[in-house]
Nucleic acid binder design. Structure first.
Lengths: 281, 281
DNA sequence: AGGCGCCTAGTGGTCAGACCACTAATCCGA
DNA sequence: TCGGATTAGTGGTCTGACCACTAGGCGCCT
């Protein structure tokens, strides 16, 4: 039953040691010799080992949820982790890919402190990927997404009206200027539009709301662009959007939280209606 | 290394064939040292370069975003996909793990239609994992999470007041009864509490809001339980929570959307304050 | 003829070992 | 003393093999 193991009082070292400080890990031939991995044994599954890569995942999860692994810490080298958990390196790599897909770790080749697999915390990319795929799979219908987006951006606008720093405001102003350029292309306008909304969310000081807003807006990028292209009265639509943005910006800089929330909701709802019907006012 | 053969007539597949007719099968050949870092231009990504598993990821992404791969469709068998994309099977598996971590595919061994890797759409688990890890990493501070949760649940409560079906309502009632049991344990109460909030979100008919609510609530499970355990005046707290729930339930069944939204916000805010300070009213 | 069970094929799951590319630290000769 | 070559350690990839599982077919036995 070597599967029960773990639970070593790790600690020590900056990189979460995988084996006892005294080395001597070696293969725990303790009974049950033979059989690599549990494979054949239909005996008592004392440890819900399940898939090999899940054991690695569990190992990392436990240490993250337990606070032993923090942002910036290193995971043990893949080869060492494989030996410790008695799985193949391939299994370790699959687990690492899973963690990578969730924005929890980052891998780098080479030598030195910068190399190896380190714990990070960049969920924005992961969230974006996840939402984009599921929106594309029609699992999250666009109207649902829009409603959630409104809720989040109401929150962001409200907080931004209270907490936006001068730098934040300057960034928004710059994006407004960008969108004000005459004859701006639809795609470029859309990107600046997205950046404007994300800037508001970022200035709100709520990391989760900001990341979710960015992910949601990005997940709608292709559908929105499709609708943009189908619009005939482009100039009329864009003017309306600009006007909305100006009003939102004014409310935020004036610290009018309720107004900002109301305006951004109206803005999103109206824009969505315009795009949805493909007509200009 | 012996790069011979590579003829293999790819038999027709009913499951999104991998080889496109007339595709430019240009082998990247690895070489080209120096181009690392995505040279500025590169508008036409003729050479995916990047990592091997990313090529697989891209292949699947393109087909999902393009609508060729829909929920229920099968990916080609790993061995076939590897041969088609000229990568190793290990690389394919790493990409599959990434997709699996995002709730986009599901793998099953065996033979027949149920086996193989199929496209699914179960993002709830993936979202939960992602949020839980990032909350544990203190990347998403709990106060931020609570604010977002309030926004989402306001939306859910509002929609639930309009759309909740009799079955939904019955489910909520059942959870209320469960929580009303005298002497209920804290953990059990917490689970029922979570289920109650998730039931509201589910009855709202907004899939994204429901999944996000469930994920957020679950990501806070351990921190909330910790606070629960530190509470002395447990009976007083639990009574207050029960009272809140009853009021929310009443507003939803009465179709009072605004009331439901206000009540659930007050409820969450008050509960969080109570838990945060560790004191009973 | 009808079961019933063994066998086969196809799939993901895992493993072992090897080599490559990259990077930081170190060594060694000029 | 200095600078290039070497080394060591890391992730990235590949190859080829075997295992476990499942559906479906085949053949043997009743």
């Amino acid at each position: 039953m070597t599967k029960k193991k773990s639970r070593e009082p790790v600690e020590a070292g900056h990189t979460v040691e995988a084996a006892e400080p005294g080395e001597a890990r070696d293969v725990p031939e303790a009974g049950e010799a033979g059989e690599a991995g549990e494979a054949g044994g239909a005996r008592e599954p004392a440890a819900p080992a399940g898939q090999a890569f899940e054991r690695v995942l569990r190992w990392v999860d436990d240490r993250i949820l337990g606070g032993e692994l923090r942002v910036g810490d290193h995971l043990p080298p893949e080869r060492e982790l494989a030996k410790t958990l008695q799985v193949s390196r391939a299994a370790v790599r699959e687990a690492v890919r899973t963690l990578q897909a969730q924005g929890v770790v980052r891998s780098a080749v080479g030598a030195g402190a910068a190399a190896g697999t380190t714990v990070t915390a960049v969920p924005a990319h992961a969230l974006t990927r996840l939402l984009r795929l599921h929106v594309a799979l029609a699992n999250f219908p666009l109207p649902d997404v829009v409603e959630v987006r409104i809720s989040l951006e109401r929150l962001s606008a409200r907080l931004a009206a209270r907490h936006a720093s001068p730098d934040d405001v300057a960034g928004m102003q710059q994006l407004l200027d960008h969108m004000a350029q005459p004859g701006i292309e639809r795609e470029e306008f859309n990107d600046a539009d997205t950046a404007f909304h994300v800037a508001i969310a970022a200035s709100a000081g709520n990391l989760l709301a900001a990341d979710l807003t960015a992910a949601i807006r990005e997940s709608m990028r292709l559908p929105i662009l499709d609708r943009f292209r189908r619009i005939d009265a482009w100039e009329g639509v864009i003017d309306e959007l600009r006007h909305d943005h100006e009003a939102i910006y004014a409310a935020i800089t004036d610290g009018q939280a309720d107004d900002a929330a109301r305006l951004i909701e109206d803005h999103i709802r109206r824009a969505w209606q315009t795009l949805g019907s493909g007509e200009a006012p």
